[in-house]
Amino acid sequence: MFGSMIRYFSTKPKPKMKPIELKTSPEQTQTIARVIFDILKEHGPLTVGDTWERVKEVGLRGLTSKRYMKIVLRWMRGRQKRETKD
């Protein structure tokens, strides 16, 4: 018990992350999120690279890079967590 208490107090808490701000309009962001969600729902769990390949096949406007797609995925995950908390 004493060892687990020491381990608990010796770990650092996660730093608070600032909210993700997307550079596309809310309407365009919703469209991008819906298309990504549909791709993941249809093809099952995919890697980021496979998801990016499928998104390129669809030809979404506003989604210019894999890096931005990862930011949108992180935003979607955070939004989902907030909705489940409420």
Rank of each mutant, 00 (worst) to 15 (best):
A33R: 09
G44K: 12
R54G: 02
I20G: 02
K66Q: 14
R34Q: 09
Y68R: 08
G3R: 12
K85L: 14
P13C: 01
R82C: 07
S10P: 00
E42I: 08
L46E: 02
K16S: 07
T11N: 06
F2E: 11
E57M: 10
K41R: 14
R82Y: 11
G3M: 08
G62A: 07
R77M: 12
A33V: 13
T64N: 11
R7S: 05
T24M: 08
T64S: 10
L40S: 08
F9R: 05
L46G: 02
T51W: 00
W52D: 00
W75Q: 10
I6H: 04
I32W: 01
K18M: 05
K14R: 07
M76A: 14
R74D: 15
K23N: 15
F2K: 09
M69A: 13
F9V: 06
S65G: 01
T47I: 03
L40R: 14
E83L: 15
M5D: 08
G59V: 01
E53D: 14
P45C: 04
L73W: 09
P15S: 07
V35T: 13
R7E: 06
G78Y: 12
Q80R: 11
G3C: 05
W52Q: 00
V58D: 01
M5Y: 10
R67H: 08
S25R: 11
T51Q: 06
I32N: 00
M5H: 07
T11Q: 11
V48N: 11
K81A: 13
T51V: 11
S65P: 04
D38K: 08
K81N: 09
K85D: 12
T51S: 15
L73P: 11
I71M: 03
L60N: 03
K14D: 07
R77Q: 14
T31P: 00
L63Q: 02
P13I: 00
K41A: 08
T11H: 06
I20Y: 04
K18R: 10
Q80N: 12
E83A: 12
L40E: 14
M1H: 12
L63K: 04
Q80H: 11
M17L: 10
M1S: 12
I20R: 09
K85Q: 15
D86R: 15
K41T: 05
S4E: 10
P26M: 06
R54E: 03
I39Y: 00
K70G: 10
E21A: 13
W52K: 00
T11G: 03
V35I: 13
P45Y: 10
T84Y: 09
T24W: 03
K16H: 07
P13E: 01
T31Y: 11
S4P: 02
F2L: 09
E57T: 06
K85S: 10
T29Q: 13
T84G: 04
E83F: 13
P15E: 12
S4G: 04
Q30P: 01
P15R: 08
T84L: 13
M69F: 13
R61M: 08
V35Y: 05
T31H: 10
M76F: 14
G49F: 01
K16N: 03
